[in-house]
């Protein structure tokens, strides 16, 4: 049993889960919805074991380190955190249908990682040999994942208000009946960002602390740092938008979608298109 095999099982589980969520959307059959969720959770458990196993495998190879050191490992961890945050929201609020808009993000990540990336375990370069790696990566990605969930919920919100606003045909209305009420979607969007924002803040602070410890500068306007700050500004705007007239509802939902787009650019775009201190986070071949 290798971690690589288990990661393939995980990807398959997320694929089946997503398809079943779509069937659930069309059929409104509760059993299908529950099954879709449980399959996603099964995938999550397998993925947890796989991450642990990869950690152990790195020690077997004599280059032991937490599996958070390159693009492949980070995207695997990212998908793991997405399902984790989804599970938290699911357990608390029990709106299964959100899975149809969140699991695809996880599937996309896993499929890309498994099919398009170098999966080998690499030794840690000196810059990454620090306990800060763990704190920094975990807080950042938990934050990113909460934003991913918020983005999925915002898309639901925009679909729902969009169709309802244009009169709403009977069939679309049928599909929409599965969606939580717009007020609930708006609230869940806010709650997800309320989880993500402090985590992103912690991620930026731990990154700054680490940079200060490793290079003597806590902030150097490196593209990655700057983009994380841009993301922070967007979500800060979102949080203030909620107490401003004229910014609630649709515009707030758009801010959440834009915020996640900026998050993805911060995570991937910076590594793929710009250069900077985080270039070792690359690895896409």
């Amino acid at each position: 049993m290798t971690s690589s095999m288990l990661f393939n099982v995980t990807t398959l589980a997320y694929l089946i889960s997503m398809l079943m969520f779509f069937v659930f959307l069309a059929s409104k059959n509760k059993t299908v919805g529950n099954a879709a969720c449980y399959i996603a959770y099964t995938g999550f458990i397998v993925q947890t074991v796989a991450i642990g196993l990869r950690w152990k495998e790195s020690y077997d190879q004599g280059v032991g380190h937490a599996p958070l050191s390159n693009l492949y490992e980070s995207i695997v961890f990212f998908t793991w955190t997405i399902i984790l945050i989804f599970a938290l929201i699911d357990f608390k609020y029990k709106y299964r249908v959100i899975g149809a808009f969140v699991v695809p993000f996880a599937l996309l990540g896993m499929a890309w990682a498994q099919l398009g990336m170098n999966t080998g375990i690499e030794p840690l370069v000196p810059a990454l040999q620090s306990n800060w790696l763990l704190y920094h990566v975990i807080t950042c990605f938990l934050g990113y994942a909460a934003f991913a969930v918020a983005c999925g919920i915002s898309i639901m919100y925009l679909i729902k208000t969009g169709i309802e606003g244009s009169g709403g045909s009977a069939s679309a209305g049928g599909l929409l009946s599965m969606f939580p009420p717009t007020k609930v979607l708006d609230d869940l969007n806010y709650r997800s960002i309320m989880i993500g924002f402090p985590l992103l803040t912690l991620g930026i602070i731990t990154g700054a602390a680490w940079a200060n410890y490793a290079w003597g500068t806590y902030w150097s306007w490196d593209p990655k740092e700057t983009w994380s700050l841009i993301v922070w500004f967007v979500y800060a705007a979102f949080l203030h938008a909620r107490i401003t007239k004229g910014w609630v509802g649709k515009r707030a939902a758009w801010l959440s979608v834009i915020g996640f787009a900026a998050t993805i650019f911060c995570y991937l775009g910076v590594n793929l298109f710009l250069s900077g201190l985080h270039s070792y986070g690359g690895g896409a071949k």
Binding site: T226, I230, F233, V234, A236, A237, H240, A262, L274
Partner: peptide, 21 residues
Amino acid sequence: SLKLTMFLLISLALTSIIGTI
């Protein structure tokens, strides 16, 4: 005003992009 806050947060986000490109 909160409008100024919104304007500033969005302006800071947008202008910061320049320095990363």
